[in-house]
Write a protein that binds this DNA or RNA. Structure first.
Lengths: 113, 113
DNA sequence: ATCATGCTTAGCCATGCAGCTAAGTAATCA
DNA sequence: TGATTACTTAGCTGCATGGCTAAGCATGAT
């Protein structure tokens, strides 16, 4: 399996959890420390840490430690692969629809005779 | 948690598996029977069945049985929620970048004085 | 009526994941 | 120095997921 593919899997996997999507939404407002991200979730710190690990592994966020505080931030271009995949699928799926349309048109023409 | 949200989770979850994405790609060429979908995966039928269940549950495919053959097909509009979520995020994330840009501009102006 | 085909169901196994507690480390504050 | 804060690590639990085999059921062909 291509790396491109496992990347996509990791991305989708990371985004499949509502808590993680909420964290991303929060980060869209700007960088935040781990505890700040944890507070609104109502989850314990270690749990949130693991979510952050998943997000970072998927390339969606970046984090760096300053003193005893770890600050997390979005990686803006991280959703690009997902966007291209989606666009690719759209073209494929619509191509399929076009062919279906052609087929229907042809059947109608044949029936018209 | 909103239904909208669990829908998104199911979508992402369903797309997080390469086998399932391969099945979707195959279906983009047109409807297919379960065995036809199973063959190229090299997996056993029950395993593929479960993948198909997941895809159907997520609303990505549709299936109907004719005789003893079950035929599966894409649901073209199924990716729409994902597209809107992505677009929403793009706006949010870019809004963030705009604000960052504003901030940088302001700092530069202040330093210029 | 019998047999082959195509799917379905039931159930097992290993692994992964989301949550937790408890205990550890490292930086800041009094 | 000692206490507090902010993560971090280790390890447990329960449930979900992806794979399998074996056996069942319904339909189509002979």
């Amino acid at each position: 399996m291509a790396k491109h593919d496992t990347d996509l899997s990791a991305l989708f996997q990371a985004l499949a959890d509502p808590t993680r999507r909420a964290i991303l939404a929060r980060l869209a407002e700007g960088p935040a420390a781990v505890s700040d991200l944890a507070r609104p979730t109502g989850l314990r710190l270690p749990t949130v840490m693991r979510h952050l690990e998943v997000l970072e592994q998927a390339g969606l966020i970046d984090s760096s430690k300053d003193g005893r505080v770890r600050s997390c931030a979005l990686v803006p271009q991280a959703l690009a692969p997902l966007r291209s995949w989606l666009e690719e699928q759209r073209i494929l799926w619509e191509g399929r629809l076009d062919r279906l349309e052609d087929y229907v048109m042809q059947v109608m023409k044949e029936q018209g005779q």
